[in-house]
Write a protein that binds this DNA or RNA. Sequence first.
DNA 1: TTTTATATACGAATACTTTCGTAGTACTAA
DNA 2: TTAGTACTACGAAAGTATTCGTATATAAAA
Lengths: 126, 126
Amino acid sequence: MDIKQKPTETELEILQILWQKGPSSVREVNDAMSQEKEIGYTTTLKLMQIMNEKELTHRDTASRTHIYTANVEEEKIKSGLLKNFINSAYRGSASSLVMQALGQGKTSADELDQIKSLIADIENRK
Amino acid sequence: MDIKQKPTETELEILQILWQKGPSSVREVNDAMSQEKEIGYTTTLKLMQIMNEKELTHRDTASRTHIYTANVEEEKIKSGLLKNFINSAYRGSASSLVMQALGQGKTSADELDQIKSLIADIENRK
DNA sequence: TTTTATATACGAATACTTTCGTAGTACTAA
DNA sequence: TTAGTACTACGAAAGTATTCGTATATAAAA
């Protein structure tokens, strides 16, 4: 199959919105983006057109207002980005990334419990 | 203090080399980079000159071969990149990043132990 | 001394990303 | 029907990152 290139920062923002809200029009995506930063409507439109060319999205052009859908899996994209990030920032060591992420101190007790049970799972799996 | 901008991907590669090897010449950095990918000597040189302008590095020009040193702290840069990455890829949730990083299955028993004890520390701290 | 290898400096080409203006078209309300 | 609004298409400008060629200087080797 075809190897999907890594999305740019802005493309990732748009994917996040599509993953979260599901199929959306340019207007809807642009409204969501506008809550974060100022961005012109045609800028968002152009970005989404480009994403469609790259096949990061699919769109339904049946009605005048086109509806875009993410055409890449959230988990796949994120794990690709994560692998890339671990390689470039942590020289490939996932655990040192984890240590630093936890060290930031913004993880709730609940989340820590979840992580602990994931670790327990991993340990039992072996 | 001055807010250091986030290094580009290539700049980060160079910083990694400087952090790892300590003060180095362009030649040394270029040799290290060449092990990963093909890159021309003057390309590396130019990058390092730019990094110096941005004050990501410092250089000693006493001898003909200039010696470059990282001028930003590894921990600070990495935590900035991490924060940024968590925000853009994991909508701010450090724990979901941690879950995915651990899920990749390449974490050794030793590393898992380290993580567990860090979690214990965090829990006691409260 | 002459040649060859190795440095730096730096402008400019290339490539990639983001932004926006303009044009054309379709809907909607007056 | 006409005016106003909302939509797509698309070229091109602007911004940023990367790559490289050429000039020039210094050092080492022949």
